[in-house]
C-alpha cells in the first residue's frame, strides 16, 4: 500500500486517549466518538496500514490475519463514513 492511500485522520478531529480508549471530537460536526481497545490501537497506528495492523492484531489476539484485516478495513470504512478519517480525495 502506497503512502498516498494510507488512511489519514481528519484535521477537524481532535482526539486523546483516556484510560486506554481514544476519544474523538469532531469539531465541525460537534460529535464525540469513543473507540474500544482495538479501535484505539488502529486509530493510534493508522500509518501502519491495514495489512500490518491486521498482522499485529492476529499475533496478539485469537483471530486469523484475514479476519483481522477484514475487520480493520470495515472499521476504517466506518470511521471514514463518520468523518473521523479523511476520505483521501482531497
Amino acid at each position: 500500500m502506497s503512502e498516498e492511500t494510507l488512511p489519514k485522520r481528519n484535521p477537524d478531529v481532535s482526539w486523546r486517549t483516556i484510560e486506554g480508549q481514544a476519544v474523538l471530537i469532531h469539531n465541525r460536526l460537534g460529535e464525540i466518538q469513543v473507540l474500544n481497545d482495538l479501535g484505539t490501537y488502529i486509530w493510534e497506528h493508522l500509518e501502519l496500514g491495514p495489512e500490518i495492523l491486521a498482522r499485529n492484531i492476529a499475533q496478539e489476539h485469537e483471530v486469523s490475519v484475514p479476519d483481522a484485516q477484514r475487520d480493520v478495513e470495515e472499521f476504517m470504512q466506518a470511521l471514514r463514513g463518520s468523518g473521523a478519517l479523511a476520505d483521501g480525495t482531497d
Binding site: Q21, L29, G30, E31, I32, Q33, V34, L35, N36, D37, L38, G39, Y41, I42, I57, E60, H61, E62, V63, A68, D71, V72, F75, A78, L79, S82
Partner: peptide, 17 residues
C-alpha cells in the same frame, strides 16, 4: 497466550447540539 478478540468498534457516539 493470545488475548480474546473483540472487533474494533466505536463504542459510544454522541452529537452535541
Amino acid at each position: 497466550m493470545k488475548k480474546p478478540y473483540e472487533k474494533p468498534a466505536v463504542i459510544y457516539k454522541e452529537r452535541i447540539e
